[in-house]
């Protein structure tokens, strides 16, 4: 049971969304946007989050788009993970999000919700970082499309009242060779000990990580290392371990040492699968 009360708004347009947000804000109250709402419910039930109002984006047409438009794939923030996988419009993203939670949960978890999660994993974002996806954001009467990499640093940095509407992917990036590997502690469903996603573009490997540090990341320094074919693969992996952006997570899912061990092996699998040897 959720112990606190809140107002619920389900707007049917961006304008109504902004109106609802401003109305709550003007009363000095806090409003949260939700799309799938699964994380909100679990956090609210355990009193890890509080809000005076929630604004449900599932009624906004722009947030439910999943289609090719000209040379771009457009994915609304309220599209469920299963719909993305089943559409097969972007197999790399489909394969990665298929590893999140369980099938029934993925009917409700949305791509926007996963990217904006308070948890450290946010695995949906790995393919999007690698293909230089753009995000369309709305605030007040303004809408803007920006590179995801420019607004994502450890988490999606949105300003107060700013709403993620859509994710836009250039069609030239959706059929590149890819690999997406997730390792969990013991069951097929669970948070990752390590999750690594990679694509090969212009003969260069791009790689992104989740579960390793306290946030998902892609690193130019690490990509330079993994692409240096003058160095033996095992040495490259050792260098990657020395150049992680922060310390490795150490928690109940896996100790620091165990995660490091798993990461090295996953990187070896990635390099072999993508034929990145000397």
């Amino acid at each position: 049971m959720i112990s606190f009360d809140f107002k619920y708004f389900k707007p049917s347009s961006v304008a109504e969304t902004i109106e609802a947000y401003n109305g709550v804000h003007e009363q000095g109250e806090k409003a949260l946007f939700i799309s799938g709402g699964t994380e909100f419910i679990t956090f609210a039930r355990t009193n890890k989050i509080y809000t005076d109002a929630i604004i449900d984006s599932k009624g906004i047409p722009e947030c439910n788009v999943l289609e090719m438009r000209d040379d771009n794939l457009v994915i609304g923030a309220a599209v469920s993970l299963n719909k993305i996988t089943n559409s097969n419009l972007f197999p790399f993203l489909g394969a990665t999000v298929k590893q999140i939670a369980d099938h029934t949960s993925r009917n409700k978890i949305t791509i926007g919700g996963n990217i904006n999660s308070e948890l450290i994993y946010k695995e949906s974002i790995l393919p999007l970082l690698l293909v230089d996806a753009k995000v369309k954001l709305a605030k007040g009467n303004d809408e803007r499309a920006v590179l995801l990499n420019s607004v994502f640093n450890r988490k999606l940095n949105l300003s107060s009242g700013e709403l993620l509407l859509q994710i836009i992917i250039d069609s030239s990036n959706i059929d590149l060779p890819y690999i997406s590997l997730k390792r969990t502690k013991f069951s097929k469903v669970g948070y990752p000990v390590v999750s690594v996603a990679a694509i090969l573009k212009d003969n260069r490997l791009r790689v992104a990580f989740s579960g390793v540090c306290g946030y998902p990341f892609r690193s130019d320094k690490i990509e330079n290392i993994v692409n240096d074919s003058t160095i033996p693969v095992v040495n490259r992996i050792d260098q990657v371990m020395d150049n992680l952006p922060s310390s490795i997570v150490d928690d109940l899912q896996g100790s620091r040492e165990y995660r490091a061990f798993v990461l090295k092996n996953v990187l070896l699998d990635v390099m072999e699968e993508m034929e990145m040897g000397e």
Partner: peptide, 12 residues
């Protein structure tokens, strides 16, 4: 579609 009813609000 199967759904965890514990993870949906009735108003949704």
């Amino acid at each position: 579609e199967p759904s965890h009813s514990c993870l949906s609000l009735a108003v949704e």
